[in-house]
Simulated scan of single mutants.
Amino acid sequence: MVGFLLWLLLLVFCWPLALLALVLWPIVWLISLPFRLVGITLHALFAFLGALLMLPARVLRGRPA
C-alpha cells in the first residue's frame, strides 16, 4: 500500500519517471528472477550440508549414556 502511494506521489510530481518505472519494473523483476533462484538453491544446499555435518553430533547426543 505504501509503495502504491509513493508511486502515485511520483506520478503527480514527475509523471514521465513514474511511467518509466511502471514499464521497467516487470523487466527488472524478470532479470532478477534467475539470481533469486540461484540464491534459493544455494541456501538449500548450505542447509543440507549443515544438517549433514551436524548429523553425527545429533546421533551421539541422542544415544543414552
Rank of each mutant, 00 (worst) to 15 (best):
M1L: 12
M1V: 10
M1H: 11
M1S: 10
V2F: 12
V2A: 13
V2H: 06
G3K: 00
G3E: 08
F4R: 12
F4S: 10
L5P: 09
L5Q: 10
L6I: 01
W7V: 00
L8P: 00
L9H: 04
L10W: 05
V12M: 08
F13Q: 03
F13I: 01
F13C: 07
C14S: 14
C14W: 15
W15L: 06
W15P: 14
W15G: 02
P16F: 08
P16R: 09
P16I: 01
P16L: 08
L17I: 05
L17K: 00
A18V: 01
A18I: 10
A18Y: 01
L19Y: 05
L20W: 14
L22N: 01
L22Q: 01
L24D: 02
W25H: 11
W25E: 03
I27N: 03
I27Y: 08
V28F: 12
L30V: 08
I31Y: 07
L33V: 00
P34F: 09
R36T: 15
R36M: 15
L37Y: 10
L37H: 02
L37F: 08
L37W: 14
V38H: 04
V38M: 06
G39H: 09
I40Q: 14
I40K: 13
T41D: 06
T41L: 09
T41V: 01
L42Y: 15
L42P: 06
H43L: 09
H43V: 05
H43R: 15
A44Q: 13
L45H: 11
F46R: 13
A47V: 13
F48R: 13
F48Q: 00
L49E: 04
A51R: 12
A51K: 11
A51W: 15
L52F: 15
L52Q: 11
M54Y: 05
L55M: 08
P56F: 04
A57W: 11
R58S: 04
R58F: 11
R58L: 13
V59T: 11
L60S: 06
L60P: 06
L60Q: 04
R61M: 01
R61C: 01
R63N: 10
